[in-house]
Simulated assay, not measured.
Amino acid sequence: MTGWLTEAVPRGRIAAFRTLIYLFVAADLVVFTPWVRTRASVPGELYQPLLIGRLLPLPTPTPTVVAVIFWGLLLAALLAATGRAPRLLGWTVCALYLEWMIIAMSYGKVDHDRFGLLVALAVLPTAGRARHGDTTRTEAGGWALRVTQIAVICTYFLAAWAKLRFGGLDWLTGSVLARAIIRRGTDLADLIAQVPYLLIVAQFGIVAFELLSPVVFLIPARWRVAMVGFFYSFHVVTIATITISFAPHLAAMTSFLPLERVRPLVWARRLAGRGPVDAEPMSTPPDQARPDDRARSGDQAPVVGRPVGP
């Protein structure tokens, strides 16, 4: 079990995941949750903090408190995305974003799509330093990704558990999706709703999908990315029909992907034609270098099967 939790991954994957998550936090402030800043104008007596907000001596949101958190978090997230000072900036972003979410969710509505992202922010500072393209493997980074993956899958599984716990079997046969389409459905959703019993079948499918999501940890690695791709396709359909994005959850779910292969700066240099791009791994040991590389460095390796002498 310990080996599974700390399965080593390339440091380049940690660097890419770190950059993506912290850039998402910055985008979240200005694109997805800018409405949190309006909490500053809400009377303080309406602030009913979550349990963690009641346990910690957190201040009631005021214009000054909200502004300091917003600008401090935005700056810290952009700096953290560079990979510098991963622990200091990582813990800073984690603390500020947690407070940002406490403010957002302490007025009667709690979104479950933030769980995976919050866990990612809590564990990323423990992964240590990592550079883009670095192929050396790290168990600390592997643990950070695995814990995030578990949080992502728990989001699905516990959502199904909540549906059955509070809605019972009536959730499966009721009008849940029909009401969602009436409230915020698209033209595509209207077409789907006209097919008899299709929404009921979809509700059974949603719960089955969420309950079976832990299977992603049991299948071979070569199929895991395909299953995660199915997860993403589920959310594409959700956005296209009832306009619910689950963007923080989708960002955290990239912990399953081989992000070290995504090298936008390298691709940009290649497209710009700025000379040859070093495609070799940053940490290739000398004894694993190709023969032509050793020849260029003056260390010519013998070629197997090549005759010696005339």
Rank of each mutant, 00 (worst) to 15 (best):
G3Y: 07
G3E: 12
G3R: 13
W4H: 08
E7K: 14
A8K: 09
V9I: 15
P10V: 07
P10W: 09
G12M: 12
I14N: 04
A16H: 05
L20D: 05
Y22M: 15
Y22V: 07
F24C: 04
A27V: 13
A27S: 11
A27E: 05
V30L: 08
T33V: 03
W35H: 15
W35D: 15
V36I: 14
V36T: 15
T38M: 13
T38N: 12
S41W: 11
V42F: 06
P43M: 07
P49I: 15
P49Y: 12
P49K: 08
G53I: 11
L56V: 13
P61E: 11
P61H: 08
V65K: 03
V65E: 11
A67T: 11
A67V: 09
F70D: 12
G72Y: 05
L73H: 14
L75S: 12
L79H: 05
A80D: 14
A81R: 13
P86W: 04
P86L: 09
L89S: 14
C94G: 13
W100G: 09
M101I: 13
I102W: 06
I103S: 07
G108N: 07
V110S: 03
D113W: 04
L118I: 10
V119D: 05
A120C: 04
A120Q: 03
L121F: 10
L121M: 07
V123C: 02
P125I: 11
T126R: 04
R129S: 14
G133Q: 05
T136E: 15
T136M: 06
R137H: 06
T138G: 12
A140N: 10
A140S: 11
G142D: 06
R146H: 08
T148I: 10
I153L: 10
A159Y: 02
W161I: 06
W161E: 01
A162P: 01
K163Q: 04
K163G: 01
K163M: 07
L164N: 00
L164F: 02
F166K: 01
W171D: 00
A178H: 04
A178L: 02
A178P: 00
A178G: 07
I181E: 00
R183G: 03
G185H: 07
L188V: 15
V195A: 10
P196L: 04
P196C: 11
L198D: 02
L199G: 04
A202M: 07
Q203D: 00
F204Q: 00
I206Q: 04
I206A: 13
A208G: 08
F209E: 02
L211D: 01
S213H: 13
L218I: 01
A221P: 00
W223L: 15
V225A: 12
V228N: 01
G229T: 09
H235Q: 10
V237F: 13
V237L: 14
T241P: 06
I242Y: 09
P248G: 10
H249K: 09
A252N: 10
M253I: 03
F256H: 05
L265G: 12
R269Q: 15
R269I: 01
R270Q: 15
A272W: 08
G273H: 10
R274E: 09
R274V: 08
R274I: 12
P276R: 13
E280Y: 11
E280R: 10
E280C: 02
S283Q: 15
P285A: 05
P285F: 02
P285S: 06
P291R: 12
A295G: 02
A295K: 06
S297K: 00
S297T: 00
G298H: 01
G298K: 01
V303A: 02
G305I: 12
G309H: 12
P310S: 11
